[in-house]
């Protein structure tokens, strides 16, 4: 896998927005590194899904993208990280934050203001965005995440799902070039989660925001991805195009939650009695239309 990546790097002009080279990081007080020799590239405008078993190093990797590692978390870092053209080790978190927005797994770690509106405006205030422009951006972010009726409420009084929307809105408002989202909808109901993923996808397609999304629930997210990175035990074990990657035997063995539509396709292909097309489906719509064709043509 690494050989293939190395070949890709030679000869092509890199458009990577995020790139790590042989990145190894150990938290203070730990003996074993949480990520080991990770070399990845996330291209400009790409929607990348990062997945893998619990404790595999996904969150740690995300913390490297916006400089939380090594500036906030100490510990031992080897290798290189570049984000939005900046060497992460050499730039402050505040500077990196203009380009790389991170939505945390636990929204309570992110929210602190007295009202939702103030929380969403906070990052913009810090950047010195003019008042009128700030107001517009805050409005836009509140609407898009469906929380404009919560603007006066105190974030700590909200439900987990509502807090997650606020956390997303506050990063959205900054309109960063790269959004890194660590299981951003885990507390949301399925319809709420689906809507948020659609918003993220729209940002990606319409505004060209590069997305790095950490998720276990591939049923909800695989369809949006251009690129999937699978980690296991601190290492990158699969890195490639979603349909191929998710249907590989390795993905199943590692315990990646393969979408059920994809799983049904695999099971039917193995059986062989129903003849299906060759494009591996990632969601129910794709699988349903494939089945419809197969059953009609018989």
């Amino acid at each position: 896998m690494r050989k293939k990546l190395a070949l890709k790097q030679v000869g092509t002009i890199s458009m990577a927005v995020i790139e790590t080279k042989n990145l190894t990081y150990t938290y203070p007080g730990r003996t074993e590194p949480s990520i080991k020799d990770v070399s990845i590239k996330i291209e400009k405008g790409e929607f990348t899904l990062i997945t893998g078993p619990s404790g595999c190093g996904k969150t740690t990797l995300c913390r490297c993208f916006n400089g939380l590692i090594p500036h906030f978390y100490q510990g031992e870092l080897k290798g290189e990280i570049t984000a939005a053209g900046l060497k992460v080790v050499e730039h402050q978190i505040s500077e990196l934050a203009r380009h790389v927005g991170l939505v945390f797994q636990n929204p309570e770690n992110q929210l602190f203001a007295l009202s939702v509106e103030k929380d969403v405006a906070f990052g913009l205030e810090n950047l010195g965005v003019p008042r009128e422009k700030m107001r517009k951006r805050v409005e836009w972010a509140l609407k898009l995440t469906g929380i404009d009726d919560l603007r006066e409420r105190a974030p700590h009084e909200l439900s987990g799902g509502q807090q997650q929307r606020v956390a997303i809105a506050s990063v959205l408002a900054m309109q960063p070039k790269v959004m890194v989202l660590d299981e951003p909808t885990s507390f949301l109901d399925p319809l709420g989660a689906k809507k948020i993923f659609e918003v993220i996808y729209e940002l990606n397609r319409k505004l060209g925001v590069t997305i790095a999304l950490v998720e276990h629930r591939l049923d909800l997210t695989a369809r949006y991805a251009d690129h999937i990175i699978v980690m296991d035990n601190g290492k990158v074990v699969l890195d490639g195009e979603p349909r191929e990657t998710l249907s590989s035997e390795e993905a199943r063995l590692i315990g990646v939650g393969i979408p059920k539509a994809t799983r049904l396709y695999q099971i039917l292909q193995k059986d062989g009695r129903i003849r299906l097309g060759n494009t591996i489906p990632l969601c129910s719509d794709e699988m349903a239309s494939m089945l419809r064709e197969a059953l009609k043509s018989q």
């Binding site: 109901d189 399925p190 319809l191 709420g192 689906k194 049923d219 979408p259 059920k260 539509a261 799983r263 049904l264 099971i267 039917l268 059986d271 969601c283 129910s284 719509d285 699988m287 349903a288 089945l291 419809r292 059953l295 009609k296």
Partner: peptide, 30 residues
């Protein structure tokens, strides 16, 4: 605010082909 599971979504979409709607398990689906 619940989205049906993927297998159910497939069977709901295909119910006009004479398939039952109440399937959620991938092996039962096969």
């Amino acid at each position: 605010s619940i989205v049906p599971p993927q297998i159910a979504q497939i069977f709901i979409q295909l119910s006009d082909l004479g398939l039952p709607k109440d399937v959620i398990d991938v092996y039962e689906a096969r």
